[in-house]
Amino acid sequence: MATRQTQSLARLMRAPAIILLLIWMIVPLAMTLYYSFLNYNLLNPANTSWARFFNYQYFYTDPAFWASIWNTLVLVLGVLSITVIGGIGIAMLIDKPIFGQGIVRILVISPFFVMPPVAALIWKNMIMHPSYGVFADLAKFLGMQPVDWFAQYPLFSIILIVAWQWLPFATLILLTALQSLDGEQMEAAEMDGAPAVQRFIHLTLPHMARAITVVILIQTIFLLGVYAEILVTTNGGPGNASTNLTFLIYRAARLNFDIGGAAAGGIIAVVLANIVAIFLMRAVGKNLD
């Protein structure tokens, strides 16, 4: 069927998407690389000069950089552990024969559709506010001192909000995997008297392994880029306590107008993301054949 004519038509059909993505990927990235070697500040563009590796050196020796790398790691790992463990638990709960399963599913999935600034502002003001939030009301009700979450535990507060946003995603993917679990096998194990914990470890977990991997990898890609949640709650502070790499680069570019420094940070972010991406591509690639 693949005559020369259909093949050239196919090439023509593929071309726009490929060319657009090629431009989108190569041009800005090449520009970032170029800027990363320049002393270039938007406040003083006349003084632009060749910087060699100064921007990288500067970024590397800045204590804020290491703080941001650490915060990025804590944020990603914190959210991952909450969402994966919570997701497994909730997926198994929803998978049970319950009344109103459809509505339960809808309620659980909902936070995923809430845009990041809205999610973060609802949590900041109505849930975690030190004087008027629901947590504060609860603390007062229990006779405890309300906590000023964003001042005392800024990174933890952001982890909580982001985990709330991503818990539905993990739950939904894990539930999809769980529903393809062989019911008969499970029944047989149950009849043989295998306790619930054993069944979970030897049947359920191995079956979900692939889905768990996918959840971890995809979430990591998105979690490396958490931005709006930080912007509207702590603005990276106090100090650098809740500044991740994305936010640090944003600050360099947009608040300090340091084009060279922000570009160097961007290149570091690309390297970090690529390490994750390689693993994800392998996982997805296997499934393509």
Binding site: M25, P28, L29, Y35, I249, A253, A263, G266, V270, A273
Partner: peptide, 11 residues
């Protein structure tokens, strides 16, 4: 898709 958005913020 895996290129972090912030990496191309400057350009």
């Amino acid at each position: 898709k895996m290129m972090p958005a912030v990496a191309v913020l400057v350009p």
